[in-house]
Design a protein around this nucleic acid. Structure first.
Length: 449
RNA sequence: GACCCUAUGGUCUAGCGGUUAGGACACCACCCUUUCACGGUGGGAGCCCGGGUUCGAGUCCCGGUAGGGUCGCCA
């Protein structure tokens, strides 16, 4: 029987980075084995489920490139889907649950209790075979020893998670349940339920959790917990995926940047680590920088324009050649696109306040006349290309008897307002003579005589 | 409180009874350089603790400690 795995998120309004990795590991396993990935929306809690919340999940998965073989195509619970085992929204599967409850009730494996329905849980330890953790013998907790039965249908008629999760995995012929380790203890309940339905449970693979940098549980509000953050901050999805793969799984050959096709080929469940991993944003940023550097020019340009637009910089107001040239000077320099507006904003708007520390250091009385000399030399310069500009600046510095840096730093500050940025000569070439002279004039005017 | 999982530098990890304990991120120094970034060289930093088993334990077993998870008419 071929592999069938599923990612079954609850639409809470955001996609947790840990959930994204669970989806990723399911996807990797499906692709590795040639099996199928099912996306099932666990929207039994009608009160807080909205189409917008489902959209967040769909968008996140699509952004990461995690395609599913069965499941919804839109956030509309009654909308189109692919696959034969639908509906894939639990809110649309009431009859299925109803049928299954009655089956348990009729065989006295469940019973009514104050309007709810409770399942008769096994009163003994249950062994959970797990592909990652190994066999786990789950004893009853003291509370469970008193009353191990648990509610499967609430008194308002709504089925609860443990029940619908098992029923759907059964109905959808799920062969492997790959999920977070936070479900490990509860798996005993699920196994008991499968047995009550007279079938063998699927194989289980509980993956370790992702913790905050300080080792505490990563919850909704923690920095970096939401996948949307990475989408908004202009990360390359390939980088996020690559980084996530390396949290709990290793190629074991000391490599970090690995093409996804190769990961698919090499990924397998037994090699997944057993211990939790802390999320290291710094390493993700490094990895993202690696991917940005390797990006093709067209894609880089496209993503830059997108990022600038979100920052309120409309590049359409400038000639395409100018925008392209400006963006080219940023290639290979960024770790994330969110740095771009601050890094290259000067191309598209006037320089505002000069970076204070740099101004104090570079806009000095003795630099004033040097800038004036450079300004005049630039005014007379024939070719305003980068190579020519470099010769010009160095020539001016030589005539003044100073190192190039004495001109470079104040000139950069005058042109960009900051002490760091793209290559000075290239940036000046892109800005063009008029803008450069105008910015130098303005800077010179601010320096005390 | 009970039950379950886990434990290699600050972080992610390689190791699977005998290694100078390897790599990556981060950090420090130097080099390259117009800034930043990249790249290069070098450096500091690790097997949680205690018992066993063994000629020999990061590696196997037990106990502690620590971290995480679960015991809901949340998912």
């Amino acid at each position: 029987m071929s592999v069938r795995v599923r990612f079954a998120p609850s639409p809470t309004g955001f996609l947790h980075i840990g959930g994204a990795r669970t989806a990723l590991f399911n996807w990797l396993y499906a692709r590795h084995t040639g099996g199928r990935l099912i996306l099932r929306i666990e929207d039994t809690d009608a009160a807080r489920n909205t189409q917008e919340a489902v959209d967040v999940i769909l968008k996140g998965l699509r952004w990461l490139g995690l395609s599913w073989d069965e499941g919804p195509l839109t956030a509309d619970a009654t909308g189109p889907c692919k696959g034969e085992r639908g509906p894939y929204y639990q809110s649309q599967r009431s009859e299925v649950y109803q049928r299954r409850v009655e089956a348990l009730l009729s065989r006295n494996l469940a019973y009514e209790h104050e309007g709810a329905v409770k399942f008769r849980m096994l009163r003994e330890a249950i062994v959970i075979p797990d592909l990652i953790v190994g066999d786990v013998r789950r004893e009853l907790t003291d509370r469970e020893a008193q009353d191990p039965d648990f509610v499967i249908i609430r008194s308002d008629g709504q089925p609860v998670f443990h029940f619908v999760n098992v029923v759907d995995d059964l109905e959808m012929d799920v062969t492997h349940v790959i999920r977070g380790e936070d479900h490990l203890s509860n798996t005993a309940k699920h196994i008991a339920l499968f047995r009550a339905f007279g079938v063998h449970p699927p194989k289980y693979a509980h993956i370790p959790l992702i913790l905050n940098a300080d080792g505490t549980k990563m919850s909704k509000r923690d920095i970096g917990a939401s996948l949307t953050t990475y989408l908004d901050e202009g990360y390359a999805p390939e980088a996020v995926v690559n980084y996530l793969c390396l949290l709990g799984w290793s190629p074991k050959d000391n490599r970090e940047i690995i093409p996804i096709a190769e990961i698919i080929e090499r990924f397998d469940l037994p090699q997944v680590l057993r211990h939790n991993a802390r999320f290291d944003m710094t390493k993700l940023e490094w990895m993202n920088g690696e991917y940005l550097r390797a990006l093709g020019d067209d894609r880089f340009h496209e993503l830059c324009v997108h990022t600038l637009a979100k920052a309120g910089i409309d590049t359409n107001q400038f000639p395409l050649d100018y925008v392209k040239a400006a963006i080219d000077t940023c290639k290979g320099k960024l770790k994330t696109f969110s740095e771009l507006p601050g890094y290259a904003g000067f191309y598209f708007s006037e320089v505002g306040d000069y970076e204070r520390a740099a101004a104090e250091k570079d806009f000095t009385v003795e630099n004033r006349h040097r800038l004036i000399k450079l300004r005049d030399a630039l005014d007379k310069l024939g070719d305003f290309g980068a190579a020519s500009l470099e010769t010009c600046l160095k020539g001016a510095a030589a005539e003044l008897g100073v190192k190039a840096g004495a001109l470079v730093h104040p000139t950069r500050l005058a042109c960009t307002g900051t002490s760091s940025g793209p290559s000075l000569y290239h940036l000046m070439q892109v800005l063009g003579r008029d803008r450069v002279l105008q910015r130098l004039d303005r800077a010179i005017a601010t320096i005390p005589n």
